[in-house]
Each structure stands twice: as C-alpha cells, then as structure tokens.
Computed example of a mutant assay.
Amino acid sequence: MKKMRIMRLLVMLSILVIILSACSGNNANGDEKSSEKGGDVYTFKVSHVTQESHVWHQTALKFGEELEKLSDGRMKLEIYPASQLGLEKDMAQQLETGSLDFGFLTNAYMSTRQDSLNAWFMPFTFKNLEEAVKMRESEAAKQMLEDLNSQGLVGLDFIFAGNRHILMKNGHVSSPQDLKGKKIRIIGSPAIQEFWEKVGAGPTAMPLSEVYTSLQTGVIDGIDIDLDALVTEKYYENAENLTLTNHITFPSVIVMSQKTYDKLTTEDQEIVKKALKAAADWGVQEAIQRENKNLEELKKHGVKVKELTDTSAFDSIAKEVKDKYAEKSPVIKKFLEEAKQ
C-alpha cells in the first residue's frame, strides 16, 4: 500500500509539472505571462546610441508610454541608451537573433547595410528639417523600410536628430574652398564619405565618444553635426564657429526584430505599430522645435553662428553625387523625384 501511495504521488507530481510547463511561456526576453485582462505580458528591450537628453531617447520614452497605454499595461519597454548594449553592428546582430527587440539605429550605419537608405544623405536636398520630415511619408521612404525585411528586421519608421551643419575650430564655410584639406569628422556612410571627398576635405569617421577630445587636441579641424548632438555632447566647448548649411538630414531608422514581431498576435503587432507611430509623430515635431531651441542655446554659449544662404558653390558637387546614387538605386531616384514635388 505504501508503495502504491508513493507511485500515485509521483504520477500527480509529474502531471503537475507538465501543466505548469504548458502554462508558462517566453516573450521576446523570457518574461511572458498571462494578463488578468487577457493577452500576454511583454517587457521589450530597445537600444540606441545617444545620450538621455537627446530627442531619440525622449522618443523612446514616449514609445514606452504609448505601449503601456494601448496595451493596458501588458507591454513595457526597457531602454538602453548611449550604446550600452554595444556598437550598432552589435545591436543589429542582437536584433537578428531576437535578443534585442527594437533598435533606433542611425541611418548612417544602416546605409552601409542597405544602399537605398543613402537617399537621406543626398547633399543639399532639404532647406530645413521640415522639408526632410515630410519625406518620411513618401513612397520611396516606405519602400526603404519594407526592404529591411530581407535582413530579419521589420522597418517601422524614421525619426530625425535634425539637419547637419558644419562646426569648425577656425572660420566659417561659404564654399568648398573653405574646407579643402581640412580634417572633418563625419558619420560613416558611403554617400557622406563621397560628398566630403568631392568637397576636398579629409573626411574622418570616428565614434561620438572620440569627437570631443579630437576637437580639443586638434586631431580634427571640424565636424559634420546636427544641433541636438552639438548641444548634448557640448562640442562647442572646443570649436565655436558654426555654419548652418543644412547639407544633409540625419534620420534614425526604427526597426524591430522579425523574431520578436513573429511571436506577437496580430492584435499585439498592431498595438506595437500604433504606439510607435504615435511616438515617432511626436518625436519628429519635437526635433523641429529643438532646432530653434538648440540654436538659441548655442548662441548663449558664445558660438559664432553664420547661415549659408547661397549654396551655389556646392551645386556641381551635389549634382554629381545625386546622379551617381540615383543611377545605382531606383528607390533613391524616386526619393529625389518626390522631394522635388
């Protein structure tokens, strides 16, 4: 009898283990549970390269708020700013494997993986950030996002840090001649590299973490920079001559891991898309407002600001770059055509 009771107890314990295993699950990062309100509970991870004061981080915070609101608290977001999870190539690998759920990746890095994204870097296409933001809804921009599927990524949207300008240790810029032979820190992108080479400068790609001291020690003569990064990283402490050129714009490509996306129900996929769209809409408007605020902040810090109103000295260079990339990519060609409308 005693042996029979032990056997029954073992059988009941085995059944209990099977039931508990069936009831448990895994979300994108191993914490999925059932909500009392219905649906699974998720804690997603998102990473980016900027500081917490930057507009991209603020947009990520807004995304988290929207996720919680639209999911009735079932979805939360853990944010890892300032490259805490590694360089962007590391983030991309984590997205591909599903260990990272969302990435706000610079268009500079992503353009090295997908040629059509160089469209955003066609020189002197936008007079201001408002013009660039409108192209977020263009058919060409939507095609760029769709094409990311081949990389195991779900392209969701674009947000912006602002348009790019030129900060120099000595003097302002009115023509390519002012940049000839100058070592200019750039972001690593094929189109940007080519533009600066044709200008006659010495383009130097380096991580953000090295820019401050490189300006300070004279390793570089200037930087290609957006105003938000210029304020948040305080580069003006080592270079005071800012020329407002608007020579390119600087988006972030917001992507989601395909593996994470595929784990969600159709309803939860729609919640993610809706939350991200609301956050991105907020983020691009915040970026536009920051352009003026950041400019005033820089002036308060003694930065000498000059606007390049006549860009004709750069026309032939800009045309050469645009023609080359439009020939390489039908998406870039379409993007440039839509930008003229």
Rank of each mutant, 00 (worst) to 15 (best):
K3V: 00
M7K: 09
R8F: 08
V11Y: 01
M12Y: 13
S14I: 12
I15E: 05
L16D: 01
V17Q: 03
I18W: 05
I18Y: 11
L20P: 14
S24V: 14
N27W: 09
N29R: 13
N29I: 14
N29L: 15
N29Q: 09
S34E: 08
E36P: 03
K37F: 00
G39I: 01
V41F: 11
F44H: 06
K45Q: 06
V49M: 11
T50I: 14
E52D: 06
E52A: 06
H54Q: 05
H54V: 15
H57D: 13
K62W: 02
E65N: 10
E65K: 10
D72P: 07
G73L: 04
L77M: 04
L77Q: 12
S83C: 08
L87T: 14
E88P: 01
E88H: 02
Q93M: 07
E96C: 00
F102R: 12
F102Y: 12
F104W: 14
N107A: 08
A108L: 09
M110I: 04
S111T: 10
R113M: 10
L117H: 09
F126Q: 07
F126V: 06
N128G: 04
K134M: 02
R136D: 09
R136W: 05
E139D: 12
A140D: 04
Q151F: 15
G152T: 12
L156D: 02
L156T: 01
G162E: 06
K169G: 07
N170W: 00
S175R: 04
S175Y: 00
S175I: 07
P176Y: 08
Q177W: 01
K180I: 09
K183R: 07
K183G: 03
K183N: 04
G188N: 13
I192A: 14
E194L: 10
G200F: 02
G200C: 00
M206P: 08
P207Q: 10
S209M: 07
Y212F: 05
I223D: 13
I223Q: 15
D224V: 04
D228Y: 03
A229H: 07
L230D: 02
Y235D: 04
Y236A: 08
N238Y: 03
A239N: 04
L242D: 04
L244W: 06
H247F: 14
H247S: 00
T260K: 05
K263V: 06
T265D: 04
E270F: 12
K274P: 02
K277D: 06
A280T: 15
D281Q: 05
G283Q: 01
V284G: 01
Q285E: 15
A287R: 06
Q289H: 09
E291F: 04
E296I: 01
E297S: 08
G302A: 12
V303L: 11
K304P: 00
K306T: 08
L308A: 07
D310A: 15
T311E: 03
T311G: 03
S312V: 12
F314E: 11
V321F: 05
Y325T: 00
P330T: 07
K334T: 15
K334I: 10
F335L: 14
E337L: 01
Q341K: 09
Q341G: 02
